[in-house]
Amino acid sequence: MIEQLSSRLVSPNLWAVVEPLIPPAKVRRQGGGRGRVCNRAIFTAIVFVLSSGCAWRHLPASFGVTVPTVHRRFQEWTDLGLWVRLRRAAAEGACGTDEIDWIRAVLDAADRRAAKAAS
């Protein structure tokens, strides 16, 4: 069931637009630690939270990612301008016409969450 929801939240076409816009991960100088969680899984979980309006802490465990990781990555990507770049890509027509309204709704929700966190 989660795969069906994930593919509806972030279609392959949308992911093809988003993936190159995601900033590269910072190199951990100390090495070791856990491997970085898949960007697509994180992005899908973020889209779920943004589109559903649920609190971060209510993110279903079935997404396979932890709430702190998703929230931390949302903050990281916000600080690095992902949502601004995605909005620009959508305005330039990178997203298909079927997805333009969806991505605008997600971006508006991202702006509201980021502004709320900043205040």
Rank of each mutant, 00 (worst) to 15 (best):
M1D: 08
I2W: 06
I2S: 05
E3I: 11
Q4C: 02
Q4G: 02
L5V: 15
L5I: 15
S6W: 02
S7F: 15
S7K: 11
R8F: 05
L9P: 10
V10F: 13
V10A: 01
V10W: 03
S11N: 05
N13H: 09
L14A: 15
L14V: 13
W15C: 03
A16V: 04
E19F: 05
E19L: 08
L21A: 10
L21D: 04
P24I: 03
P24R: 10
K26T: 10
R28L: 14
R29Y: 13
R29E: 07
R29Q: 10
Q30F: 15
G32Q: 04
G32S: 03
G32F: 07
G33N: 10
G33C: 06
G33K: 12
R34I: 01
R34D: 13
R34N: 01
R34T: 02
R34L: 14
G35D: 12
V37E: 15
N39L: 08
N39V: 05
R40L: 12
A41I: 10
T44Q: 01
T44C: 12
T44V: 09
A45Y: 10
V47L: 03
V47M: 06
V49Y: 00
L50F: 07
L50V: 09
S51N: 07
S52G: 04
S52T: 09
G53M: 09
C54S: 10
W56Q: 09
W56K: 02
W56M: 12
R57T: 15
H58V: 07
L59Q: 00
A61N: 03
S62N: 08
S62E: 08
F63G: 02
T66L: 11
V67D: 06
V67G: 09
P68G: 00
P68K: 07
H71F: 14
H71K: 04
R72V: 06
R72N: 03
R73W: 09
Q75F: 13
E76N: 13
E76F: 14
W77Y: 08
T78D: 12
T78G: 05
D79R: 08
G81Q: 01
L82Q: 08
L82D: 00
W83Q: 07
V84R: 09
R87A: 12
R87L: 15
A89C: 00
A90H: 03
A91Y: 06
A94I: 06
C95Q: 03
C95N: 05
G96S: 12
T97D: 04
T97E: 12
D98I: 11
E99Q: 01
E99F: 08
I100G: 01
D101L: 15
W102V: 01
W102G: 01
I103L: 11
R104I: 00
R104L: 11
R104F: 13
V106Y: 05
V106H: 00
L107G: 02
L107I: 09
A109K: 07
D111T: 14
R112F: 09
R113I: 02
A115F: 02
A115S: 11
A115G: 00
A115M: 09
A117M: 06
S119F: 04
S119M: 01
